[in-house]
Nucleic acid binder design. Structure first.
Length: 897
RNA sequence: GGCCGAGUGGCGGAAUUGGCAGACGCAUCGGACUUAAAAUCCGAAGUUCCGAAAGGAGCGUGCGGGUUCGAGUCCCGCCUCGGCUACCA
């Protein structure tokens, strides 16, 4: 008695697909293919915990789209691989004394087993891991592209996509070298080029965790300023780091979101992250800080000189340059604040204030970014003793240092307008600094201008009084520019990307440092030749951090670490490694051509498969991964290596699956659902179907084990609708016969085909499943079930529950897989019913039901309604004011009395 | 604090975009089959009030207003929950 036996069916069909290479995809389209479709899941990190139920959520969705699209004769690319470098593997390795290569391999094996167990139609011949040498060879190669590129912001050009744009990443050899630099010689030219590369080095503050003995990425530091792993304190240190100049692409990263098929909220998230703001840079004269009188005397001539020479590129030591989005509040600037690290502090601090200033700077320098922002409630700062001259009215105003001004944004200095900025107001109140109102709020009930941060009308602003904010901004910016005192400026919150990590388990940089005669780095670098890639990770037993910021690779064997160039220069390798993001920045390209040993991807293959048509994954990657990938892709685009400006045309974020208690799943809450357990109890088809039936893909939704039971029962019903459960073998039920469908059955079938098809197109899988349940509820009640209808249902169900569908397809007499069988089609004419029941409302309340011809005109509907006894009873003796009839929908009588 | 998203039965969720609120599933209750149970099959069910019953009347999509013949859906004002972000001048 063959009951629905998921275990037997699933292993049978998984081997079938493997043995028949059912889902192996050629880069040559099959004959008659209806175009290509590249469907991608976000790159999983193979953690030691194995798959969690969030993985199959997005992956089932993409699998449904792929299986459906193949039946629609699309040429489908659907790959899977592993993002396997990274800190968790390394930490685990250190704790257990196992090499990360081993644990990573083990984790990958677990993940692969679990993915296969779920019956996803991946082309496994395209699988790779970011830790494979012939993968990271090309990660290094792309890094060298970044190294070899500078951004020409003014370059106008038309790309292979046919669109014109300004700004292009160009080969460093095309960088114009100023004659002053050329005359200084070769080394000066090289240093000048190095300053302009998209991959460059910088002394940058990093998150140093003494307990872990490593530097952490911002994402690895908790909101409390502790390490994500182990909860150890984290402090700041200045270290020489590799940076990627993503800020050059900020404008294009915003603009080119426009044509992407992404949700508005994700686009907004990216725009906010990039954080473009428009404002002005304004120069405040400082000069001789020891005497305010002489400052006032010097101010006039300085201003006059500026009117002559204009606004300089660098303000110089005696001028303080600020960035503001509100140049219209310039008259309200009563003091200035510079970041404690600002270089001008050394020039302007007076003798009396020096000790206080240095003490403050010292305290701040030892705080992490997070400590600094943590102190947000209490404003701190110190007066430098110096004053600057307000360029609009020549008033001397005091210059303070405070950690609420960040060196990394704008110019690292602000003009403080306490009257109209919350932070400045709080600071001014703390330190008793003057507050001036210069903006009148527009509505009169809001009569207190102090603390008003919106737009209004200018007051106390000399000749500008009475101007609306917007107009004032424009006018004063023009005037400042004319006087050489300011200029329009754009700023981004986005920072350049800190790209190096002091870790072992990552891609080595393909970079040599030149050494001088004493073996010290000269600061000059050279790339590893492309034909020498990859720079393989040296085999090291000891990769445990030593409590200093030296990366583990710095004690790699000398053969790896040192070399002599052909010109005799001694070279030392870069010993930092790349962050985990590196490998996931371009993996979607490699899937299209993972065996290529001549190029990261063949240009023709790239042109054929890219961009990714559908990309599904969690919203946690809405900014970082997606922004980094887009950046790399654009650099490759500019350099002519890819043909599309964007990698991911359509993006969908799946909603998080919560535990049964409506809380986020976590080990500590004990509400984690393990896919292995669900599959062993109900089978993969039930897990897949349940995850899709839970609710809309993009919505957050709680797990319910009883819901899995429900879809499992549904699959059992489908099984019994087609299979004779009382026979000894799996045979067709006697009720399934080669008969024509009745009109009613036709209608149900075609309605189901239409609904399921449209729902899949909309990624509305939960409703698609409920349609198939309705179909099943109708047909299980029939004593004779037309075989054709059963076949059609099996085809509709196959993307969702592919194992069961294949088994039933076989029972229905088909020798071959249904994976490439044409998708059922519906006939619109079959859907039409002659008559429909519509409600009759009296004053908007349903009082009766009538049957009308589907195509009945409003007038006819009204007449039918009026002839009904029930309606007569309701409107009797009342005055009918108006009748609204919507064809095929409803009739509404508006009555009085 | 800022931005984004969401509030519909006991629960997960539907609702052709302004037209019968609660599809489908879970849980619940009743029945059939069975010696019994499991499994399966059939059926009931938003809620309050009236009625012995068939049935009838009212109320119902977080709260308060509004637009409309008609609002879960549109507009205005709030409340609650979730996510992201956090001194960006």
């Amino acid at each position: 008695m063959p009951r629905y036996d998921a275990r037997r069916i699933e292993s049978k069909w998984q081997s079938y697909w493997d043995n028949h290479r059912t889902f192996v995809t050629s880069n040559e389209p099959q004959e008659g293919a209806q175009g290509k479709l590249y469907v991608l899941d976000m790159f999983p990190y193979p953690s030691g915990d194995g798959l969690h139920v969030g993985h199959p959520e997005g992956q089932t969705a993409t699998d449904i789209v792929c299986r459906y699209s193949r039946m629609k004769e699309k040429h489908v690319l659907h790959p899977m691989g592993w993002d396997a470098f990274g800190l968790p593997a390394e930490q685990y390795a250190i704790q257990t004394g196992t090499h990360p290569r081993e644990t990573t391999q083990r984790n990958i094996d677990t993940f692969r087993r679990q993915e296969k167990m779920l019956g996803f139609s991946y082309d496994w011949t395209r699988e790779f891991s970011t830790t494979d040498e012939d993968y990271y060879r090309w990660t290094q190669w792309i890094f060298l592209q970044l190294y070899d590129t500078w951004y020409d912001a003014d370059f106008e050009w038309t790309g292979p996509d046919g669109l014109s744009r300004a700004g292009k990443g160009r080969p460093i050899s095309e960088l114009p070298i100023p004659s002053g630099v050329t005359s200084e010689g070769d080394v000066a030219v090289r240093r000048y080029q190095d300053e302009h590369r998209l991959a460059y080095q910088l002394d940058a503050p990093v998150n140093w965790c003494p307990a872990l003995g490593t530097v952490l990425a911002n994402e690895e530091v908790t909101a409390e300023g502790k390490s994500d792993r182990g909860n150890h304190p984290v402090e700041r240190r200045q270290l020489r780091q590799w940076m990627l100049r993503i800020t050059s692409y900020a404008e294009r990263l915003i603009d080119e979101l426009e044509n992407l098929d992404w949700s508005e909220s994700i686009k907004l998230l990216q725009r906010n992250w990039i954080g473009k703001s428009l404002g002005a840079e304004v120069d405040f004269y400082v000069g001789d800080v020891t005497s305010t009188e002489s400052q006032i005397m010097e101010f006039g001539p300085w201003k006059a000189a500026r009117a002559e020479v204009g606004f300089p590129e660098h303000p110089g030591d005696l001028v303080l340059r600020v960035y503001t989005t509100r140049p219209d509040t310039l008259y309200g600037a009563t003091y200035m604040v510079v970041a404690p690290e600002h270089p001008i502090v050394d020039h302007i601090t007076t003798e009396e204030q020096r000790v206080k200033v240095e003490t403050y700077r010292d305290i701040v320098s030892r705080k992490s970014d997070l400590d600094r922002t943590d102190l947000a409630k209490e404003k701190t700062g110190v007066f430098t003793g110096a004053h600057a001259m307000n360029p609009v009215n020549g008033e001397p105003i005091p210059i303070w240092i405070a950690d609420y001004v960040l060196m990394s944004y704008g110019t690292g200095a602000i003009m403080a307008v306490p009257g109209h900025d919350e932070r400045d107001l709080e600071f001014a109140r703390t330190f008793d600094l003057p507050i001036t109102a210069v903006v009148m709020p527009p509505d009169t009930d809001h009569d207190e201008p102090i603390g008003f941060v919106g737009e209004g009308t200018a007051i106390n602003s000399g000749e500008y009084d009475g101007l609306p904010t917007a107009e004032f901004k424009q006018k004063i910016t023009e005037n400042l520019a004319a006087g050489g005192l300011g200029q329009l400026a754009t700023n981004y919150r986005l920072r350049d990307w800190l790209f190096s990590r002091q870790r072992y388990w990552g891609e080595p940089f393909p970079i040599w440092h030149e050494l001088d005669d004493e073996g010290k780095p000269t600061g000059l670098t050279r790339p590893v030749a492309a034909d020498k890639l990859p720079v393989t990770l040296p085999d090291m037993e000891d990769f445990k951090p030593k409590g200093t910021p030296d990366p583990p690779l710095s004690w790699a064997p000398d053969e790896w670490l040192y070399a002599t160039a052909e010109d005799g220069t001694r070279l030392k390798r870069e010993t930092n490694s790349m962050p985990q993001w590196a490998g996931s920045c371009w993996y979607y390209l490699r899937f299209a051509d993972n065996k290529n040993s001549d190029a990261f991807i063949d240009p023709a293959v790239e042109k054929y498969w890219l961009p990714v048509d559908l990309y599904i994954g969690g919203a946690e990657h809405a900014v970082l991964h997606l922004l980094y990938s887009r950046f790399w892709h654009k650099v490759l685009f500019d350099r002519g290596h890819v043909s599309t400006p964007e990698p991911f045309q359509k993006l969908v974020n799946q909603g998080m699956i919560l535990g049964e208690n409506n809380e986020k799943m976590s080990k500590s809450r004990g509400n984690v659902v393990n896919p292995d357990d669900v599959v062993s109890q109900y089978g993969a088809d039930s897990l897949r179907l349940y995850e899709m039936f839970m609710g809309p893909l993009e919505q957050v939704k709680p797990w319910q084990m009883s819901g899995v039971e429900g879809v499992y029962r549904f699959l059992g019903r489908v099984w019994r609708m087609i299979v004779d459960e009382r026979a000894d073998d799996v045979t067709l039920s006697a009720a399934v016969q080669e008969v024509d469908l009745t009109d009613e059955q036709q209608r149900v079938l075609h309605k189901t085909i239409k609904a399921v098809t449209e729902d899949i197109d909309k990624l509305s899988f939960n409703t698609a499943i409920s349609r198939m349940m309705e179909f099943t509820n109708v047909f299980t009640q029939e004593d004779v079930r037309p075989k054709f209808a059963m076949e059609q249902l099996v085809l509709l169900l196959s993307p969702f529950a592919p194992h069961l569908a294949e088994e039933l397809w076989e029972v229905l007499g088909h020798a071959e897989t249904l994976a490439y069988n044409p998708w059922p089609e519906y006939d619109e004419s079959m859907l039409i019913e002659d008559e429909v029941e519509v409600p009759v409302q009296i004053n908007g309340k349903v009082r009766a039901k009538i049957r009308v011809p589907v195509d009945a005109k409003p007038q006819a509907m009204q007449e039918i309604a009026e002839s009904s006894d029930e309606v007569q009873k309701q409107i009797e003796g009342k005055q009918v004011v108006k009748v609204i009839a919507v064809p095929g929908r409803m009739v509404n009588f508006v009555v009085k009395g």
